[in-house]
Amino acid sequence: MIIFIEKDDRKVSKRFAGTVASLLSSLDINPETVLVSRNGEIVTEDVVLKDSDDIKILSVVSGG
């Protein structure tokens, strides 16, 4: 699975199958702070991902 983490502008490649929630947990990312898209579509935390999916994690936090 290719995971693009927009905040850090980096791509992570890892084998993963499971829910969005468990993926975020494995990356130590708080779901409250991001939107996740799978193959270009926004998905909720209960959605089960396949290893062949393209994932984008978009940070929603801002402010200074």
Binding site: E6, K7, L58, S59, V60, V61, S62, G63, G64
Partner: peptide, 9 residues
């Protein structure tokens, strides 16, 4: 969606 670089301070 990028953060201001000064936010870390």
């Amino acid at each position: 969606f990028t953060e201001c670089p000064y936010v870390v301070f």
